[in-house]
């Protein structure tokens, strides 16, 4: 069942009949069960639901970090399930930016070097990489902290560096797994504000997993998962 549908040409992400099972010995765990979903380009979608409902698994499958048991994930017209490991890696580098709850910065690299990481895989010259990194850091308001190591930054600043790293290669899709989960309210709001701005001003499609209803409120749509199924959808403006 399609819980959020968009008109064909505008649709960036299409998920069809998505199943994901995990096997623990003889036990089969159905994490996602025939999930369908459409997300328009430039939309900011929040996924909510209890732990174990399949939110992160859905995000991983859309981002090509994991493979479904059955069903398809199509992003920008490309069915990513069909891509080989190498092509999937390359696709991910070009089209997807990831933001994690624990920031996952590399502690021995400066903010600048962390943000630069995805660009090392491109053919960009050092000057071009430099320009992209500074643009990304400026966008998250951390241009003056480029030479600082993660250990010298606050949690909020670390998450902003992680956002800069996610957007530096100019991906179409941003996947955020509880980006405010480790932050206080005020800092969390700043992060959500940045994501909102990226969606509205820079036309990034943002899919965010969160437990925080206040954070989810800032999204265009809130989708609720339970036991691997979408059980409720609130499209801002349609349901009030």
């Amino acid at each position: 069942m399609v819980r959020v549908d968009c008109s064909g040409t505008d649709c960036l992400v299409q998920v069809r009949n998505l199943d994901k099972k995990y096997y623990r010995g003889n036990e089969v765990i159905d994490v996602l069960r025939g999930l369908n979903l459409d997300v328009s380009a430039g939309e900011f979608v929040a996924f909510m639901g209890p732990s174990g409902s399949g939110k992160t698994t859905l995000l991983n499958l859309i981002g090509g970090l994991d493979t479904p048991t059955s069903g398809t994930v199509t992003v920008g017209g490309e069915e990513i399930n069909d891509l080989s490991g190498r092509r999937l890696t390359s696709w991910r580098a070009r089209h997807v930016g990831f933001i994690f709850q624990m920031y996952n910065l590399i502690p021995v690299l400066t903010a600048y070097q962390n943000v630069q990481l995805p660009l090392l895989l491109t053919g960009l010259s050092k000057a071009e990489r430099d320009r992209h990194v500074h643009t990304a850091l400026e966008l998250v308001g951390l241009a003056d902290r480029a030479k600082h190591y993660p250990g010298q930054l606050s949690g909020g600043e670390e998450q902003r560096v992680a956002i800069a790293r996610a957007i530096v290669a100019d991906p179409t899709l941003l996947l955020c797994d509880e980006p405010t989960g480790d932050l206080d309210r005020e800092t969390g709001d700043e992060i959500i504000e940045i994501l909102h701005r990226l969606s509205k001003e820079h036309e990034k499609t943002v899919l965010m997993v969160t437990h925080d209803p206040l954070a989810a409120e800032k999204a265009d749509s809130q989708l609720h998962l339970e036991k691997g199924l979408l059980v409720e959808a609130e499209r801002r403006g349609e349901i009030s």
Binding site: G63, G85, T89, R92, R94, N104, I106, L117, L121, A169
Partner: peptide, 9 residues
């Protein structure tokens, strides 16, 4: 994380 951002195996 490196693999996530696009580093190949």
């Amino acid at each position: 994380v490196m693999k996530t951002v696009g580093f190949s195996d």
